[in-house]
């Protein structure tokens, strides 16, 4: 097994997903299949190959420190489930 039921439940909690026990069971099986498939890559010999995070060797994509126009506020708030005309309104969360 590449992944345990506990790990699936942990990841679901981190992603704020409510899984029923049946869903958790099903996901565990499916994710295990996916991980096993990806694990094929482990068979490739990567001795002497450096760690790569990007497929192309590009570095230093910069922009200059210049201010550009921002969105109008009503546009910024347009997709929000709730707003008060000035701010996004969310359930109170104190941490």
């Amino acid at each position: 097994m590449k992944i345990t039921r506990e790990e699936v439940e942990h990841v679901a909690r981190l992603a704020r997903l409510d899984l029923t026990p049946e869903e958790a069971e099903r996901m565990t099986g499916q994710l295990d299949t996916i991980l096993n498939y990806v694990a094929k890559l482990d068979e490739v010999d990567t001795t002497g190959v450096g760690e790569t995070t990007h497929s192309q060797r590009v570095t230093n994509a910069f922009r200059e420190d210049e201010v550009r126009p921002s969105l109008a506020r009503e546009k910024a708030l347009a997709n929000a489930p709730a707003d008060n005309g000035e701010a996004f309104v969310v359930p109170k969360i104190i941490s």
Partner: peptide, 8 residues
């Protein structure tokens, strides 16, 4: 109210 206002 049990809400918070978000300014980004």
């Amino acid at each position: 109210e049990p809400v918070s206002y978000v300014d980004l």
